[in-house]
Design a protein around this nucleic acid. Structure first.
Lengths: 203, 203
DNA sequence: AAATTATTTAATCAAATGATTAATTATTTT
DNA sequence: AAAATAATTAATCATTTGATTAAATAATTT
């Protein structure tokens, strides 16, 4: 294997293809993405894509694994932290989730629509079962509020954080500039943990 | 135009194609749907699809308009009802939204991912601007809680109602049977309006 | 430097796919 | 019933698209 000696800043061909594939797949989805789009985006010959990754599907599988890791990788450790209180976790999870979504706003719709196309293949990868049944966070939720399933609060937290991002193409033009929208997300960083705390109090 | 005289229960060919197209497009998305899939699903010859609708894209546009109407048609009138209080609206909106989503669980991801593929063409259709700026509901939210943008509460309501449905492929296997999942949604019908009410109270 | 191996390209293939055509059957109008 | 119009079908076309091939170039090893 003859690894090219490239200038530090240059990416290897393999990396260029992966990054182009990540952009194109995320933006258009598997079915709407053309291998020619990816090759052009990467600035390489189409045949190279197959030379390095054998097929569109194999390339996609690699990209998808990385994107899912991006979507949940930051979150998972927070859920299992024994050293933080429930309140701290609410703040940390909200914070990290909104940060990640701000950096990768098109990730949720991409992952969700690919799961729709291939539930069996992808749904497992998220390890949602483990997080739901074994995480410290869920345990703490149950201790705090015994009469309501912790799933509800988890859904609320994720739903409130996620919604503005998946609805962004619809809402952004109404709310105004990109900056305006981001300002609203900054408010939600503070508000969402407060709201969840309110829900957790007995009535 | 010679409309066929069919038995009452039979659908016209045009209707059969539309219903098949609705199923196939919603399940797979525009890019992954094949006109042959639609023809087979409708039990008709492929050429008939073009005979009635000229092209895949024109057929899609018709289906999409109907699906968007389904997604927001029930909601819009509730937002403008002068005869209900804010509390009643919270209950009505949640109730109707969850009912609609239960009947059409794959609708949100379909609409959102098509908007991603074609924001300019689709985002306007939802008339979100009008609902956000002129609805009685938003006005009532502003009167109740002057220090927080009504957008936040709208996002929270929709996010909390929507999330369980878009995450269903991931969460359903964990929570258990379809019945279990539906039971949880029934709980949320009652809980979500309560939670929003709590958020609306001054701290 | 020669030989070997790795990388890259242009050209091409084969299958999939949206769309059309020309002929056939069914329905409606005259 | 004959003529005209509408609906339906099988066959086919033209493009698109994922993938391959054979040849050329670049890098590495001997």
């Amino acid at each position: 294997m003859a690894k090219k000696v490239k200038a530090e800043l240059d990416l290897t061909t393999e990396q260029k293809i992966k990054e182009a594939a990540s952009r194109v797949f995320t933006k258009k989805g598997y079915g709407n993405a053309r291998t020619r789009d990816i090759a052009e985006e990467a600035g390489i010959n189409l045949a190279l894509l197959n030379y390095y990754f054998r097929s569109k599907e194999k390339l996609f599988d690699i990209i998808m694994a990385e994107r899912i890791e991006k979507l949940f990788g930051v979150l998972a450790p927070l859920l299992y932290d024994e050293g933080t209180t429930l309140e701290e976790k609410l703040q940390n999870i909200t914070d990290n989730y909104i940060t990640m979504l701000t950096e990768h706003p098109d990730l949720p719709i991409f992952v969700l629509s690919e799961i729709r196309n291939n539930p069996d293949k992808l749904a497992d990868r998220l390890q949602a079962r483990k997080h739901m049944t074994q995480s410290v966070f869920v345990r703490q939720l149950m201790e705090k509020r015994k009469d309501i399933s912790p799933f509800h609060f988890l859904m609320n937290l994720l739903g409130m954080a996620l919604f503005p991002f998946i609805a962004k193409p619809v809402l952004q033009p109404i709310i105004g500039s990109e900056n305006n929208y981001n300002a609203m997300m900054e408010q939600r960083r503070v508000l969402i943990p407060k709201w969840i705390k309110m829900m957790l109090e007995e009535v």
